[in-house]
Simulated scan of single mutants.
Amino acid sequence: MSESRTPTYIYKLVSFTSPIPDPVPETLPLSELDAADGFMHFSTSRQIPRTLKRFFAQDPRVTILRIDYSKVEHEIRWEDSKGTAPREVGGEGIFPHIYNRALSKADIESMLVLESNNGDWDEALKKAERWMLY
């Protein structure tokens, strides 16, 4: 029997340069990348390690927002990182994207702050394993 390709959660990684306010506002501003691309970039739990190492290598900490996939599934487009080449759910190199809106407070199931060890995310990822569910 094959493992489900549909995730339970998707994750939004937020740089330390754009901290999430406390309390969390009703609508979060789009990141510069999301605004420029016209969609919000998300990762599955399996994609987080590569996303951290590729796009957040210089960040000392990152906030990860966990989103219940079932609540946003109807809005998700599974595409490559550039928003082209639509593909199958959970495919290799294929990411969940949401177009034409910002993330709302109601979308966030929970959040976690990870801290790197001088650019090395392995220890933080190990500690977060139980929270980062596919």
Rank of each mutant, 00 (worst) to 15 (best):
D59P: 06
P49K: 14
T44A: 03
S43E: 01
L28S: 13
W78V: 05
E92C: 13
T51K: 09
A124V: 01
R54P: 00
P23S: 11
K126A: 14
R54D: 03
E73G: 11
P60V: 08
G119Y: 03
K105P: 05
W78C: 02
G93T: 14
T51M: 13
V113R: 06
G90K: 00
V72Q: 08
Q58M: 09
H41G: 02
I67W: 00
W78R: 04
P60D: 14
T84G: 04
I108S: 00
P96Q: 08
L13N: 04
D59T: 01
I64C: 05
R77V: 08
A36P: 03
D22P: 01
R87V: 06
R77N: 08
L52I: 00
E73W: 12
L33F: 07
T44N: 04
S43W: 00
P49F: 11
R87I: 01
K53G: 13
F42D: 00
S116C: 10
L52G: 01
A102V: 09
R87T: 08
G90L: 00
I76L: 11
S70Q: 15
G119I: 02
D22R: 14
R54K: 09
F55Q: 08
P25K: 09
T27D: 05
P25R: 06
P86I: 10
S110T: 10
P25E: 07
V24H: 10
L33E: 12
F56I: 01
S43N: 12
V113L: 04
D122W: 06
G83H: 06
R77C: 11
S43Y: 01
R66F: 09
G119V: 04
E123H: 07
D120I: 15
L114H: 01
H41T: 15
L112H: 07
P60T: 11
A102W: 00
L65M: 04
H74L: 15
P21E: 03
G83E: 09
S70M: 14
P21A: 07
S81K: 10
S31E: 01
N100C: 01
K82S: 12
P49N: 12
H41S: 13
I108T: 00
G93R: 14
T84C: 06
R87N: 12
D37A: 11
S81Q: 10
Y99V: 00
Q47D: 15
S70Y: 10
H74G: 15
D122L: 12
I67P: 00
F16A: 14
F56T: 11
E92M: 13
H74Q: 12
E92H: 13
K126I: 06
P86Y: 04
L112A: 02
K105H: 08
